[in-house]
Write a protein that binds this DNA or RNA. Structure first.
Lengths: 148, 148
DNA sequence: GTTGATATATACTCACGCTATGGATGATGA
DNA sequence: TCATCATCCATAGCGTGAGTATATATCAAC
């Protein structure tokens, strides 16, 4: 049983990785969004949690700090975020979402939703519940992975 | 009710996209795998379905054909796949998994599993079942999205 | 057998990740 | 106080991987 269990858990992990990445690729591709998924997740972070430092954003999105600097540069050039200085630490620069940035994020979400909706509405309520719970669990798994 | 439902479906779609992409990013990052997730998915496709054409692989992974040519070039240079000619169509080139490619894929899956396992073993059986079902549903959603 | 469609490869550009490193600021302790 | 070390971010340089446009070979249809 133990062997069986760990075997099936391993297969589950591999499947989640493959299907999760394919799903995000598919969705972002079909939205026609030019910006990267990391850029969208940055906007999402800022909307949810307010202004954040470059380093904090990099840590959350699991990319190196210079890559986040580049991403923020691009977002700033487009007027979707702006940099401010941190009152508590002059080294840090704090990234804040603009109205335009919020609008871009909302538009992206709406397009993603429009693409997924036809597939989602065909699902039974129980399957919708499964996906809701799965989103929670994935978030939890990411935290559990990062904290080691 | 209708408004509520479509609103919550839309939020679900956005969350699945964000969490799904973050999860795959996290996993692939922590495996230390140098190759791209697309490369891994190509190997996975070949293992599951046998030899496939370049164009078919590109379509499945939602990347343009030249990008898939490049990916296959790299995999071939590493000896993980080889190109053959299609008996039925001399224009096509058929990509086949090698033993080495299969081994690389298995190793990747094992590493991914090792990373996810500590998080997974803490979950209740019902949550494991949720994730299993969610992987199915995501696969189904991708197909439903692509077919339009 | 000529024409048009299709499968792949090549050329070129850009986005985006990484490491290494530098400059500015914060924190620590003699 | 000031010297030292750590930390935060930016810059530089590099490689991968995605895109479009286009060339080449082959198939299909008339």
């Amino acid at each position: 049983m133990d062997d069986d269990d760990s075997g099936s858990l391993d297969r589950l992990a591999a499947r989640l990785l493959v299907q999760g990445s394919r799903f995000s690729r598919s969705m972002s591709r079909h939205t026609g969004e030019q910006r990267s998924l990391v850029a969208m997740r940055v906007l999402s972070n800022l909307l949810q949690d307010g202004p954040l430092r470059i380093g904090e954003l990099a840590a959350r999105e699991l990319i190196a700090q210079p890559a986040m600097t580049t991403t923020v540069n691009r977002l700033e050039a487009e007027g979707l975020v702006f940099r401010g200085s941190d009152a508590e630490d002059a080294r840090a620069s704090v990234v804040t979402l603009t109205e335009a940035g919020s609008a871009v994020l909302m538009s992206f979400r709406a397009r993603a939703a429009a693409i997924a909706r036809p597939g989602l509405v065909q699902l039974a309520d129980s399957d919708i519940a499964v996906l809701e719970r799965a989103a929670d669990l994935l978030e939890q798994l990411v935290r559990s992975i990062s904290s080691r």
